[in-house]
Design a binder for these strands. Sequence first.
RNA 1: GCUCUGGUGGUGGAAUGGUAGACACGAGGGACUUAAAAUCCCUUGCCCGCAAGGGCGUGUGGGUUCAAGUCCCACCCGGAGUACCA
Length: 963
Amino acid sequence: MDYNFSELEPRWQNWWREHGVYHVDNHSDKPHYYVLDMFPYPSGAGLHVGHPLGYIASDIYARYKRLRGYNVLHPMGYDAYGLPAEQYAIQTGQHPAVTTEKNIARYREQLDKIGFSFDWDREVRTCEPKYYKWTQWTFLQLFKHYYDNTLQKAVPISELEERFARQGSEELDAACTEVLDFTAEEWRAWDKVKRSQVLMNYRLAYLADIPVNWCAELGTVLANDEVVGGLSVRGGYPVERKLMRQWSLRVSAYAQRLVDGLEQVDWTDSLKEIQRNWIGRSEGAAVWFPLDVKSNENVLPGAQAYMPQFDPQPVPSFEIFTTRPDTIYGVTFMVLCPEHELIDSITTDAQRQQVQDYVTWAKNRSERERQAEVKKVSGVFTGAYAVNPLTEEKIPIWVSDYVLAGYGTGAIMAVPAHDSRDFAFARHFGLPIRQVVAADKDPETGKPIVSDPNTWSESMDAKSGWSVNSGQFSGMKVKEAMAAVIDKIEEMGIGHRTVNFRLRDAIFSRQRYWGEPFPIYYKPYATPIPEECLPLELPEVSEFKPTATGEPPLGHATKWAWDTKSNTVVDCSAIDNDTVFPLELSTMPGFAGSSGYYLRYMDPTNDEAYFSKEAVGYWQNVDLYVGGAEHGTGHLIYARFWNKFLFDIGMAVKEEPFQKLINQGMIQGRSNFVYRSKTDNSLFISKGLIKNMDDVTPIHVDINIVDNDVLDIEKFREWRPEFANARFDMEDGKYVCGWEVEKMSKSMYNVQNPDDLVARYGADTLRLYEMFLGPVEQAKPWDTNGIEGVHRFLKKFWRLFESLGDEPASKDELKVLHQTIKKITDDVERFSFNTCVSTFMICANQLADSKCCSREVLEPLTVLIAPFAPHIAEELWHQLGHEGSVCDAGWPQYDPKMLVEDTVKYPVQFNGKMRFTVELPAVCTQDEAVAAIKAMPEGQKWMEGKEPKKVIFVPKKIINIVL
RNA sequence: GCUCUGGUGGUGGAAUGGUAGACACGAGGGACUUAAAAUCCCUUGCCCGCAAGGGCGUGUGGGUUCAAGUCCCACCCGGAGUACCA
């Protein structure tokens, strides 16, 4: 009987479904293991071969763990809310729910064909009310908590209210939008509206006027990770900075813990590095620079707000942040960002017009312009001066947009000699440059080498060398000087050690329809609907575009108001701002639903809770997470934040959600080209016959009509009408196409659909081939050129069973088996699935050579291959007479004794040069080996009259004799 | 610019510091067949040689070691992330 994959695979897929083979319980005596894939966004295009790569790898590992006796949770679901479905809805008027449903059905059909071991009883869809109920619930918990920096955790906001009533803001160290200062009396005197404003300043989910990434084309705001180079990631539309009232998540409160947590997880260094860079922790000092009051009569009381709280200074001052406090003697000017509050009050009358013009210009510049012209220096002098607190020098204050409002304090001390941006600025405006760090010391005098910085072509930014021209700190190493200067500053009471993060809070509102509604109404301050009323379901709207007044699409909903009497959603016409209030019109962003989905899989049908204590207590967290590295600054940050918060409030039991993470490499497309002659429009020249590439035009050709780079000429003529009369210059009767690695995309005709390959070769071949392509982590172009080889292997494997018998295996056959078991076990453990496939091939070749047909050998082999090629394994397992699934067979163990060879061929080297090979007993000592070599004719020839000075004996590897 | 990766035959890729190129594709040759498909066998890093054999080889140049694709230093070239973050 032939290997009939197209009959056998659907049959076993049905059998698995009917027998609930992949159903997982939350109760088991077995150890638990949780294998998770990043769930897909079901797009209209369906799956391409890149998607299953990670799913196949995780499926292999999940099946392996199960065979090793673990209770394995391996779920799948859909990230179903998002922009593309909505864009499509706007264009076609189709409800996003309808298209999403259709796409999900298509995805499911494709996934089922590949034979995954997902427990579909646990499927989640982020757009379903029973799921997003818990997204909304988590949002409300974030709204109801603040972050206490002293305790380093989230605390209920009710405790903050009690605290304010007791002692005001005194001694409070909490994550907040701005530092507030008030007494208990003041708090008690405030009304509900004022109090809600104050509390909003501390909530972990908060509403604030913040500069956002506004994308006019998409009609929505975007998070930082959704914008690259001033353009939206989705669509590539321009994005501008705009001040808007938006919901945000106070992710920044967790910045330190997000950095620290990276130490505890088993991720690749590169991904950890991506996250560290994104969080951008930098240590340095906050320093107060007093204004030079004498030189500027315009210093107004407004500047008083900048007085340091810890030490009332007699003069107004402002705060800067620096990572190089050691260079404070090199400050020759100060720079404020154009948005800085102090600008108005310090600018002198003479400079006022210029400063105002500059600030206006800077504000109107688009984000893209600003980023594109980074190298262009611009700025203006305010006319005001500050005083360097250590040198008491008078230093000019400038305004420039190279200082950003969102980082640090929006003000810097400029040290042009040791910062490249300050250097460029100083050069451009002719400001003085002063060297305060020397890179080297003169080897003779031992003195640091200084030179005239005005002759430098670039600044000396390295944090190494020795301080010079720095008063009492001169001569110190840079690292020492940093510490010493901060100590001095703290002693003087004009600053302190501090840490700054680049990570910003995540903007959480989207002016879109297809997302989770906020469970918030306005009376007029933001108020949550009662938790027992969740989920607040997404209303129907007449259209999906923004309203005429520019409100989000939910503005079209007629029934979108909250009745506080009945606690139900009622018609907007009922709004009386007394008992019926308007509901929030924005929806949540895509990352809301995907931030906590892994927890929901543990207990997906629970209506009482996000997940039960028992479920999370059993499964703990994800043991293995497989997905693309492109989520490094988005999903993987949000999910960790989400989980840490849930940990703080006692929901999650592990602080980190994903213990081990493997990034599958991106699969690029491999495009094929035909070459059309420039002189004859219907003539196509085979690649090898082209003399000069300038004579031909390369044209993308559908990879589905090309096989091993050979064009199917008939199909090509049918492909497009203009090629119907094509003629070909062929080599050896074939038309050979060119190829190139490009992004997989429809327009390049290089999209490979997994269904076609399953139909042609079977799911098992596809699975093995995707693994055989190379290491899972590595990016690689898709290329079907080798798939035949893998398919041939499966046919060969199948044939091994044709003469199956019960006779005992030979010693050599057993050796092959046990070596294979060991190699496969080791390689699966280290996720080296490509070498596993090779090992199977070697094993099959050896057994075919020895005509092995012993059950003793073939039965364990069937189990070994089951994670990789489950269909054929299941079929053969049943042919071997078993009733149950091969999934529960138990992983075969190897016998270490079977791995030992009787004899081993050692390469023998003299003085490092390979001279000959000697066969020795596998188990022997160094002395025995040398004696055996001496006894051989070749050995005598080399050792004649000499005694070895040194012998390096590496058992089973090599013997190296130094004469 | 900074950070992280990687650089091995015609191709994808193997190699706990120990015979580099496993395994597969492609290519060439052969067997079986009326023929094709399928299957099987041989050759296939480069150079010299009829051969036996010898020489050279893991981006480049140094170093450590009895021994380096692997470890260390410098440089060159790809890929990814990030970008006025003080």
